[in-house]
C-alpha cells in the first residue's frame, strides 16, 4: 500500500482494474450473505428474467472494489470516513471493471473529498458517488 501525503484538487486516483468478474466468487458471497436471489448464481434464472446470460454480481461487491481502490491510494481502507454511492447498473460475470476517482476538495482538517466511480470497460458507469478520507 502507498499513502499519498499531499493530494491536490484535481488529482486522479490510480485506477483499480478487475480484469474479469468471477462467477464463482458470486456463489461464495451469496453463501456468506445468505442471499437467496438466484440471479447471482443461476444462469437459467438470469435468462428467464431477460437479464442476459451471465450471473449478476452482488452490489456490495461493486462497492467493495471502489473501497479497495481508495484503500490502495490512501494507505489503507480504514482511512475511508464516509462513502456515499448510487448503484447505476448491473455488473455481470466476465465484465472488465475499472474503479477510479478524482480529488474534489481538501478540508482544513485534512479530510480529502473525492468523486468515485466504477465503470464497465472503463466507460459505462455502474456505480458513482462521493468519498471522504482522512489521510493525516
Amino acid at each position: 500500500m502507498s499513502a499519498v501525503l499531499n493530494p491536490s484538487v484535481g488529482d486522479e486516483l490510480p485506477r483499480l482494474v478487475i480484469e474479469a468478474v468471477d462467477a464463482e466468487k458470486m456463489k461464495t458471497m451469496a453463501a456468506l450473505l445468505g442471499d437467496s436471489n438466484p440471479i447471482h448464481w443461476d444462469v437459467d434464472t438470469v435468462r428467464e428474467l431477460g437479464m442476459g446470460d451471465q450471473p449478476v454480481n452482488q452490489g456490495p461487491n461493486n462497492l467493495g472494489y471502489v473501497m479497495n481502490m481508495l484503500g490502495d491510494w490512501a494507505g489503507g481502507a480504514e482511512r475511508i470516513q464516509n462513502i456515499r454511492v448510487r448503484f447505476l447498473d448491473n455488473v455481470f460475470a466476465g465484465d472488465r471493471l475499472e474503479a477510479g476517482g478524482t480529488v474534489t476538495a481538501i478540508g482544513d482538517d485534512g479530510t480529502v473529498e473525492c468523486d468515485v466511480w466504477l465503470a464497465r470497460d472503463g466507460t459505462h458507469p455502474v456505480l458513482a458517488g462521493t468519498a471522504f478520507l482522512l489521510l493525516a
Binding site: 478487475i18 466468487k25 461464495t28 456490495p60 462497492l63 467493495g64 479497495n68 484503500g71 481502507a77
Partner: peptide
C-alpha cells in the same frame, strides 16, 4: 477471509476488518 477473497481485498494481519463489514 472469504469476503476479502471475494472482493479482492488484502488479507490483513492487524485485526481490522474491511470497511464493507460496516455494511454487512
Amino acid at each position: 477471509w472469504l469476503t476479502n477473497d471475494v472482493i479482492g481485498a488484502p488479507q490483513r494481519t492487524d485485526g481490522i476488518a474491511h470497511p464493507m463489514f460496516c455494511y454487512y
